[in-house]
């Protein structure tokens, strides 16, 4: 009963994993939608095959039981069925591979020019985000650190070990380029509802493009063992409307420019 309550009656935040969740989180990007659709498509045929194979298996066990059928027929060859059951299963993976590769390469491809570049830099054990599109010099940049909120600190309604103090604010319905890199050891930048999991490799800049389709707060966690506090480096992406993004950025940028101007 308690389990059922957990399963059905939890008021989980919309885009975080919920207790006893079985499926994926709701898609926020077309890519994630594609992944979920592919998963469901494959699962349909997977279950058909499962039912078919278990039927054959159970039927064989049933009919060839030693009590029911003490002297089995001595069939050791059946050319037709052997050809069929070799060819057919080898075609199935091909039909799975076609949509799978199509999706894989479309994830990789940058079709349109991105509108915003965000650099997600992994550290032991926090993340730094740089918004450098609005810089006019090397020194000035919109950079902030994103630390997890400690286990004993979250407020009511916040998810344990998923919240951070500074979220990544991105505009919705905009093509984003995320440049992922660490400053020390390998990390990974993963947001399940955006369909993104990009490893951060030292000395290398990995690019991943997303386009968040709806406003919301999306949670992710580090997905590459990066040290003792690997579990305490979550990712929180907050998608806002373009207008709000503009005012956020300019509000953070204007104090900075004033500071640099004074200094």
């Amino acid at each position: 009963m308690i389990v059922l309550e957990w399963r059905f009656l939890t008021i989980a935040p919309c885009d975080a994993a919920e207790p006893w969740q079985l499926g994926s989180q709701d898609a926020a990007t077309p890519m994630m939608q594609g992944i979920i659709d592919l998963h469901h498509d494959i699962f349909f045929f997977l279950i058909l095959i499962l039912v078919f194979v278990s039927r054959i298996l159970v039927r064989a066990l049933w009919h060839f039981h030693y009590k029911k059928n003490p002297i089995p027929q001595r069939i050791v060859h059946g050319t037709t069925i052997e050809i069929l059951r070799t060819i057919f299963p080898s075609i199935i993976p091909m039909f799975i591979a076609i949509p799978s590769f199509a999706l894989l390469y479309s994830m990789d491809e940058v079709v349109v020019d991105p509108a915003i570049t965000i650099k997600a830099i992994g550290h032991q054990w926090y993340r730094t985000y740089e918004y450098s599109d609005y810089n006019s010099s090397d020194e000035q940049s919109l950079t902030f650190d994103s630390y997890t909120i400690p286990e004993d600190d979250p407020e009511l309604g916040q998810s344990r070990l998923l919240e951070v103090d500074n979220r990544v604010v991105v505009p919705a319905k905009t093509h984003l380029r995320i440049i992922v890199t660490p400053a020390d050891v390998p990390h990974s930048w993963a947001v399940p509802s955006s369909g993104v999991k990009c490893d951060a490799v030292p000395g290398r800049l990995n690019q991943t493009s997303i386009s968040v389709q709806r406003e919301g707060v999306y949670y992710g966690q580090c997905s590459e063992i990066c040290g003792t506090n690997h579990a305490f480096t979550p990712i929180v992406v907050e998608a806002v409307s373009r207008k709000d993004y503009g005012s956020r950025v300019s509000n953070q940028l204007i104090p900075q420019t004033n500071q640099t101007g004074e200094a």
Binding site: D108, E109, V110, V112, D113, P114, A115, I116, T117, D133, Y134, P171, T174, R177, I179, C198, G203, R204, L205, N206, Q207, T208, R242, Y245, G246, S247, V249, S250, L253
Partner: peptide
């Protein structure tokens, strides 16, 4: 003024660097 101030624009996609690895792009 508010709109140009935060003009949403960044480095375009470069056909010389079509892959995930953008180290050389930078």
């Amino acid at each position: 003024e508010e709109t140009p101030e935060i003009k949403i624009e960044t480095a375009p996609a470069d056909f010389r660097f079509p892959t995930t690895n953008q180290t050389r792009h930078c």
